[in-house]
């Protein structure tokens, strides 16, 4: 006799099976639709029945998608047109979109958009591109890039009354910033993995059931006047003899990384946009500077943990 639990597991098994089969079918059908010359082969004479029309529509859809994806995957920066639904939009709502696909480690991890509108330049007849909407995070210097490559009025660039707009350069430098940022994020993740720390993107998911960890660390414990106290906690940490990295954390732009060891050594590291360690300050457990180690930290971000542990 089957219990309810058994039936439930059976049902969920069937659901997953349906899902995989669906995915498989979708995969197969897109492979079939992508066959070369399929459209031509499906057109025997000029009879126009409904299934053929549907097939043609699907083939067209698929080949459009294939073309788009190939462009996106190979170029990294692609442009497209969208329509602003706002009835009062400038230039009848014609919007030029710029799409930046960021790939890390053989995967496309994120897509960013910048939507540009044409706008009449003041007191002049020509039109300039202006950023209308975008999905670039604030840790990317979009404003500066736009000022440099898409100046809209003469005040942005000195001694030039007709500043040139260079969308290609804009896209290229914006992509460089975005990819650099993603690679720095990835590099810090790798460092964390190397140090045996949990993935920071998963942090706070499971352990928070009780709410006890909701505030991470009080950053200004030093403000209190009686700081003769904070020494008590570390005494036992050292006794187990193994010194390990407690935490590696970075700011949102990954330009500064802080490493904390279990024996109260710390290192604060400045990183350039291309991922090289530019400056580093390592401190010993007493708070003094560790000049030799600081010098050792300068270099590529990869292998930083090994350099510092050595």
């Amino acid at each position: 006799m089957e219990t309810i639990e058994q039936l439930d597991t059976d049902i969920s098994d069937l659901h997953t099976r349906i899902a995989t089969l669906r995915a498989h079918r979708a995969n197969l059908s897109s492979i079939l639709l992508s066959q070369p010359h399929l459209a031509a082969r499906l057109q025997p004479g000029n009879q126009r029945d409904k299934p053929t029309e549907t097939a043609q529509r699907l083939i067209k859809q698929q080949s459009a998608r294939n073309l788009e994806n190939i462009h996106r995957a190979c170029a990294g920066v692609t442009a497209y047109k969208v329509q602003d639904p706002d009835p009062h939009a400038v230039n009848n709502g014609n919007i030029l979109g710029v799409r930046i696909d960021v790939s890390i480690g053989g995967k496309f991890v994120e897509t960013y958009h910048v939507l540009l509108a044409f706008q009449e330049r003041e007191s002049e007849s020509d039109k300039v591109l202006r950023i209308h909407k975008h999905t670039i995070p604030p840790c990317i210097p979009l404003q500066q890039l736009a000022n440099r490559w898409l100046p809209s009025s003469s005040k942005d660039v000195e001694d030039a009354t007709h500043p040139e707009q260079d969308l290609v350069h804009f896209g290229r430098s914006l992509r460089k910033e975005l990819v650099g940022w993603h690679m720095r994020v990835q590099a810090v993740e790798d460092l964390r993995k190397e140090a045996g720390l949990p993935d920071s993107r998963l942090k706070g998911d499971g352990q928070d059931t009780f709410g006890i960890e909701s505030t991470a660390g009080i950053l200004n414990a030093f403000v209190s006047d009686d700081d003769a106290s904070s020494d008590a906690e570390e005494a036992e940490e050292e006794e187990d003899g193994i010194i390990r990295i407690l935490d590696i954390e970075s700011d949102a732009a990954v330009r500064q990384v802080t490493i904390t060891w279990s024996d109260r050594r710390t290192a604060v590291i400045n990183i350039n946009k291309d991922g090289t360690v530019e400056k580093a300050v390592c401190r010993t457990k007493g708070g003094g500077r560790d000049v030799a180690r600081s010098r050792k930290a300068v270099g590529p971000l990869r292998g930083l943990v090994q350099r510092l542990m050595a």
């Binding site: 639709l33 699907l58 294939n66 994806n69 639904p85 696909d101 939507l115 909407k133 999905t135």
Partner: peptide, 24 residues
């Protein structure tokens, strides 16, 4: 800078992954 109707650009409802070829 992508509020309102432009929100489709910040989640993935507008553009699929560049390697996602399935249209059906």
């Amino acid at each position: 800078a992508a509020a309102g109707g432009w929100s489709i650009f910040q989640d993935h409802s507008f553009s699929q992954n560049a390697l996602d070829f399935i249209t059906t």
